[in-house]
Write a protein that binds this DNA or RNA. Structure first.
Lengths: 192, 192
DNA sequence: GTTTTTGTTGATTGACGAGTCAATAAACTT
DNA sequence: AAGTTTATTGACTCGTCAATCAACAAAAAC
């Protein structure tokens, strides 16, 4: 059966399966065997490619974060003006690629992982810093000294909407979620 | 050693230890033995009083929610006017009783628990509904039709601030957190 | 065509942890 | 004083799961 060049395919399959299982199951208590089974291989193979369960989780987290980062980059290139760029960042947070049931569920669980696994914490910190600096870049010219507070508010609000979405499976409307955050943004930009 | 009437003391000690361990450790992966040890008893006794680990967690969650509920009630009796009551609700969310490191950490983890344990989900739903209806009660007279959106925004923002606080141990200022949410509220109430 | 590299798994190990149980002891009841 | 209820634990069971290993298979390299 050994088709050569299997490694990247296997890794990707495991990452995908991990996100699905963690997101759907709503818990980090998934066994390597379950993940491997879903990805169509033995648990031994999963260990072979990733070395440990933690590495599998971290890879899944990296995947989610990089999808999100790509979404933001993509949205920013076509956006115009400071306000437009800020809206683009918000929109990216609720783009179909990131705002799916499993991804949201996985996200919440990775938050928890970040409390114990230093590497997960680091990844999350990178994401948060990048989001913050992206926001600041376009907020400062518009709202000046208030930029810091607004950026923190936006970040917290996005996370809050996410966490709530994770708990209302199905009842979560992407557009409504985005609209809520955009309303906050517009209000803060009023008269600027 | 058997002092009679130990049950309530033991239960309380276990609940306290659970919140501390889950909050500090940042994970639901604490063993009953660890919790019991911290509470100064054997794991067998913990099982004797609670029956299962899940019941211990649920009791801890109930304790956190009831502290919060009491905080809100207390704040509401002295508040005056719709806007004052809304501010009181926000303040209660960041009162020293609830906004402590372990409590915040535990909170985040109970969110995760709610994804898998139906009873935990129910408790959380009760809290969210109560918060929402409290907010609506005083928002409707001021902002009318916009009340629903504002209430959802406030709820999400509070949760978001909490989740971020859970990840920045130490770096979390209670007042700053409250101020952020209050700023949002004030902005929504502007001109009303 | 043999050796090496890559892919793959079943079986096993070793640890850990939830929940049970039997036994012990102090206090309360009668 | 005998019996009952409450408190308490050490030792044990039983299951689960991450990680390892030995072995097998196919492709590549030599």
């Amino acid at each position: 059966m050994p088709k050569l060049g299997a490694e990247p395919i296997r890794r990707a399959a495991l990452v995908k399966a991990t996100i699905e299982m963690v997101g759907d199951g709503g818990s980090l208590d998934v066994t390597v065997a379950q993940i491997a089974r879903r990805a169509g291989m033995s648990s031994a193979l999963a260990h072979h490619y990733f070395g440990s369960k933690e590495q599998i989780f971290l890879a899944a987290m990296r995947a989610i974060l990089s999808i999100y980062a790509a979404e933001v980059r993509g949205a920013l290139v076509v956006a115009e003006g400071h306000a437009g760029r800020l809206r683009a960042i918000v929109h990216a947070s609720f783009a179909p690629g990131s705002f799916r049931r499993e991804a949201i569920g996985a996200w919440l669980n990775f938050y928890v992982l970040a409390q114990t696994a230093p590497e997960a914490r680091r990844l999350l910190a990178v994401y948060q810093r990048r989001l913050h600096s992206n926001l600041m870049h376009d907020l400062k010219p518009i709202v000046g000294a208030r930029a810091g507070g607004v950026a923190r508010g936006l970040g917290a609000l996005i996370d809050g909407v996410y966490i709530r979405a994770a708990l209302q499976p199905g009842a979560t409307d992407r557009r409504a979620a985005a609209a809520l955050v955009l309303a906050y943004l517009d209000r803060e930009l009023e008269g600027a």
